[in-house]
Each structure stands twice: as structure tokens, then as C-alpha cells.
Design a protein around this nucleic acid. Structure first.
Lengths: 191, 191
DNA sequence: TGTACTGTACCGAATGTTCGGTATATTGAT
DNA sequence: ATCAATATACCGAACATTCGGTACAGTACA
């Protein structure tokens, strides 16, 4: 039942908000119950294998979202690279609530985790990274420059989320994304 | 008893490793007991107020470390800014185990936490940020440039830790720190 | 003897999970 | 169209386990 992302997306989205905000251990079934409005036993009806199944459903859902709203547009060669990058930043802002919402990548990889979920996330990260590298190359960067730039961009995104969560300064994310815009164009002029 | 960082530093260091690796909720007393080799009662003897007290001791300890090994050298005006920055990066590499070890700042600020510990960490972050800004200014940057640069540096540090934890690519941290070195000198030439 | 620490046993509360059962909607055969 | 059978969504109460924490007798060493 768990993989049915068909129409219980609002349920999964609720779970998503909790997991990204509290991490796996910090998320309790009671909390999920509160937030979804469903009783614990009802949650187990939707996800028979329990908490981990709920997380898997969330991760799958998010992965699909990323492909649809981030990776696909990023690889759309009909659109100019500069515009694709600008669009990406807009999407990212929405996805992370202007930096107020965490990234699952950060929150789920604690402990000694080398789980199936970890691999899924790793794949998505790689896909994202490669799409960015490709974009950089299409925009005129060398392979080397594009690789460095792409990795650095994702690092800045993740890092900004950490810092903004700490300081609660809502401008941090905006500022950094602006900076990334400038850097992008500057790298193109150089190359 | 908890604040006595006198000679049980090896104990606190063990606790530190667990907390930074598993977060607060992910850290159980049993786990702490396993890792330290102490029974629960012994742990509670050292930290009568329990788990939160252990975390406080860790945070205080880390804060002291940061002041001693990072903030103080960073503000040593007898040393050239460029060298201070290079030294900082060396220290950071050690502190984060070349990117293999987490940052407490990231790991402890999940959920809706607005605790006393949170404030402590916020102070340390601010102090670090300000020291970097000061360094930037001493190196010739404008206040504005220094502020942007300093924030960005810390963002990159945190972000790199997140990404490296995900990919287990041990070169990420090194690469990014090298990049920061170059950026630093480039910003100075510009200004 | 006194003080610092450890080992064992235990507790209440919270955790994730399961069970038995209800209500409603859907289906299939007549 | 009717009625039984099934499927789906949900709930309340209990489950076993683990959680953080306590009590207390014992040990080591001064």
C-alpha cells in the first residue's frame, strides 16, 4: 500500500514535513498521529511495516518531486542554460520554504546509516549533481569547472539551510541564492 | 559535577563523538554506556541531571575548544591575516576529521528547539562569524564584503559536512577548503 | 573510616507495534 | 434492484520493548 503515491499525497506531505523537521529518531508515531489527524493504528493501516515504511514512502515521494520539478526542467535543452538556472533557484526557494525548511538529505543521514534509503538519496543527489554539471558545460564551462561549480552549489544550498536554521535569519537563503546567480554569470564570462 | 572539564575530558570526548554522530534523540543512554565503557549508574554519577546534562557538558566543552583553538588564534593580530586563515583551515580539518565528523550545530538544532543549548551555540556561531569578518577587514576587505565572505565560508563548511556525509567522498572537504583558500586571496586582490 | 565510584536490580513512562472491531463504500451474482 | 461478500479506511485498547532515571549495596582506595 505504501508506494501508492496516487492521492494520499496530502498524507505523505504531512509525514514529510515532520520527518524533515525532526529527523527519523526525533519523529514519533504519536507526533505523526497528531499532525495527520489519524490515529496510530490508522497510520499502520497505510504503512503496515511501520515507521520505516512511512519514511520510505516519504523519500520516494520527494524523489519523484525532485525529478519532476528540478531534474527534468534542469535538463530541458530547449531552454537557455541561464534561464534554467534561474528557474532552478526559484523552485528551490519554494521547495525549502525560503530556507525555513530542512533537507531530508541532511536530516536522515545520521548514525551509521548505510540503508536502502541512504542509497536512494545518494542516487538523487548524484543525478542532481550531474544535471548541474551538464548545465554548466552547456553554458560554456569546462568539465572541470562545471564539476567544481556544481558540487559547490549544492554544498551552499545545504549549508545555508543549516545556518539559517541556526540563526533564523530569513534573508540568508535569499542572499546566498543571489550570490550564486552572480557567480554563475561571472564564471561564464571568464570561461 | 557536570561542568568539571578538568580531567574527565576523555569521557566528555566520547560523549561528544556520539552526540555529534547520532543527534540528541538518536543518542541513547545505553549507547553512551557501551561507548564509554561505563555503566549507567556511573554516567549518572558524573552527570546527576542526566542526558541533557551530558549534552550540556559536551556543548560547553566544545565551546571551550572552539574558543581556544579557533577564535583566539583567529583574532591574534600579531599574525598576518593570510596565515591566520590558513591556520584556521588546518584546525578545522582536524576538528571535523577531514569532513568525516559532523558538526553539533547542525545535529542539535532539529525540531522546534529554542533551548538554552541552542543559545549557547548561537553565541559561538556569532563569535566565529564576527572573528571572520574582522579578519576579512584586516586583510583589506570592506565591511560589506567581509560580512558576505565570512557567512559564506561558514555555510560552505557546514554544507560540505552534509554532502560528504552523504557521499562518503573524503576529498570533498579538502577540495572545498582549497577552493576557499583561493577565493580568499582572490577577494584580497580585487579589493 | 570515609569518599569516590561501580554493579545490579528496578521503576514509570514513552516508544513502536499489533489486535479486534466498526463504518462505509464497492463489487458480483442473482 | 437486491443482498451477500469484499475491500478500504479508520479507531480504541492493549502489546512488548526501550527509554531515561533511581535506589542501594558493594568495591577500591585514601
Amino acid at each position: 500500500m505504501a508506494q501508492q503515491a496516487s492521492e494520499n499525497t496530502s498524507l505523505i506531505e504531512s509525514l514529510f514535513e515532520i520527518f524533515r523537521n525532526h529527523g527519523y529518531e526525533g519523529t514519533t508515531i504519536s507526533l505523526l498521529s497528531e499532525v495527520t489527524g489519524l490515529q496510530k493504528s490508522s497510520l499502520y493501516h497505510h504503512f503496515p511495516k511501520g515507521k520505516e515504511d512511512m519514511l520510505k514512502a516519504v523519500v520516494s515521494y520527494v524523489s519523484a518531486q525532485i525529478h519532476q520539478y528540478i531534474l527534468t526542467p534542469l535538463s530541458d535543452s530547449k531552454v537557455k542554460p541561464e534561464k534554467r538556472f534561474t528557474d532552478l533557484i526559484v523552485t528551490i526557494k519554494v521547495f525549502y520554504g525560503d530556507g525555513r525548511k530542512n533537507c531530508l538529505l541532511n536530516v536522515l543521514n545520521l548514525g551509521d546509516a548505510k540503508t536502502e534509503i541512504n542509497e536512494l538519496q545518494n542516487n538523487d543527489y548524484s543525478a542532481w549533481l550531474n544535471a548541474l554539471i551538464q548545465l554548466g558545460k552547456e553554458a560554456g564551462m569546462t568539465q572541470q569547472d562545471a564539476a567544481v561549480w556544481a558540487e559547490r552549489f549544492l554544498i551552499v544550498v545545504e549549508g545555508t539551510l543549516v545556518i539559517q536554521r541556526l540563526t533564523s535569519d530569513t534573508h540568508t537563503f535569499e542572499n546566498q541564492m543571489e550570490y550564486e546567480q552572480k557567480q554563475f554569470h561571472q564564471l561564464l564570462k571568464q570561461g
